[in-house]
Simulated assay, not measured.
Amino acid sequence: MRSLSRLLRRAARTAASLTAAALLLLSSLDAAAWGREGHRTIALIAQKHLSNKAAAQIKELLGDKSIADVASWADEVRNQPEYKGTGAWHFVNLPLGYGFGEFNQQLKAKTEANAYQAFNDNLKLLADKTQPREKRLDALKFVVHLVGDIHEPMHVSRAEDKGGNDIQLQFQGEGTNLHRMWDSGLIHAQGLSDDKMAADYDHPDKQLAAIWAKSPVEQWLFESYLVSTKQYAEAPNGTTLDAEYYKKHIDEVRVRLQQGGIRLAEVLNEALK
């Protein structure tokens, strides 16, 4: 009898472990899928604006793959031993309340690894044709991804709540957090594929697109910082978000995806001219 009880307890523990593992896997896949959708949308828009020279060099580096195919590569490898130091490359943490001048000063003074530093370093490496092909290939994939991260507002936010990950919210009857809302929740609520988003969004005003393309990366980061600052005030911990929140902010998401695509094409065209 005691043996049977031990077997039952062991079976229960095993089932619980398997269930937890399965839930963790599903959660990871869900986060990767929707995060991948936003990154692919930016890359798909950028592809349409590449110069012939840039497109040819990208093909030399990627072969049969496109920049959209590798847009989430940097997320997929961040826990691999050879890339374990790249986790901090995906965000910038700064206190709230800065105007652009002080924000720019504090951004450039940061010594720890961050998205700003990683973007500049990898863009420089990509443009240097004396570097080995494999290094330039990795640099290309990081640049594609980091432009996307920089345009996601919660990737330029506060350290104390892990970029909004610790701010728990309710949306569409489910628990989420502020970071996930902007990574994937608002995109998911549209119900559009990445191909459809890229096709629908890639029609900005030409003069406005030209301004976006020529703006410096510090401006991209500050734009995200301003949006994330508003979100901390608008969606504090414990808030239930409704359809009005979606209607209010989905256009901001669309603009950030547009800007990311136009700007990604511009930096690739410049680096690979």
Rank of each mutant, 00 (worst) to 15 (best):
R2K: 13
L4C: 09
S5G: 01
L7T: 13
R9I: 15
A11V: 09
R13Q: 07
T14C: 02
A15G: 02
S17T: 12
L18Q: 12
A22F: 12
L24I: 03
L25D: 11
S27H: 13
S28F: 15
A32L: 15
G35Y: 03
R36E: 15
T41P: 03
I42E: 10
A43G: 05
A43S: 10
A43W: 00
Q47G: 13
K48N: 12
H49L: 10
H49M: 10
L50P: 10
E60L: 03
G63C: 01
G63I: 05
D64W: 00
I67L: 07
A68N: 04
A68F: 03
D69S: 09
V70Y: 01
S72E: 08
E76C: 02
R78S: 07
N79H: 11
Y83N: 05
G87E: 15
G87F: 14
F91T: 12
V92G: 02
V92D: 01
G99L: 04
G101L: 10
G101Q: 15
E102W: 03
E102Q: 13
E102K: 09
F103H: 05
F103C: 08
Q105T: 13
K108Y: 02
E112V: 03
Y116N: 04
A118E: 06
N120W: 06
D121R: 05
L123N: 03
A127G: 12
D128W: 08
Q131E: 14
P132Q: 05
R133A: 15
R136C: 04
A139R: 02
A139H: 03
K141H: 13
K141G: 12
F142V: 08
V144N: 05
L146G: 02
V147D: 00
D149V: 09
D149Q: 08
D149E: 13
E152Y: 01
E152H: 06
P153C: 11
H155G: 03
V156D: 02
A159K: 10
E160K: 08
E160W: 06
D161I: 03
G163F: 00
N165I: 09
N165R: 15
Q170S: 14
Q170M: 11
E174A: 09
G175N: 14
H179T: 06
R180T: 15
R180K: 13
M181E: 13
D183G: 09
S184R: 06
I187R: 07
H188Q: 15
Q190H: 06
G191I: 10
L192N: 09
L192E: 12
L192G: 02
M197G: 06
D200W: 02
D202F: 04
D205G: 01
D205T: 01
A210T: 13
A210Q: 14
I211L: 11
L221R: 01
L221D: 01
Y225S: 00
Y225A: 00
V227G: 01
T229G: 02
A233G: 06
A235K: 01
L241N: 05
A243E: 14
E244R: 04
Y245I: 05
K247D: 15
H249K: 04
V255M: 11
G260I: 12
G260F: 08
E266T: 04
A271G: 06
L272H: 01
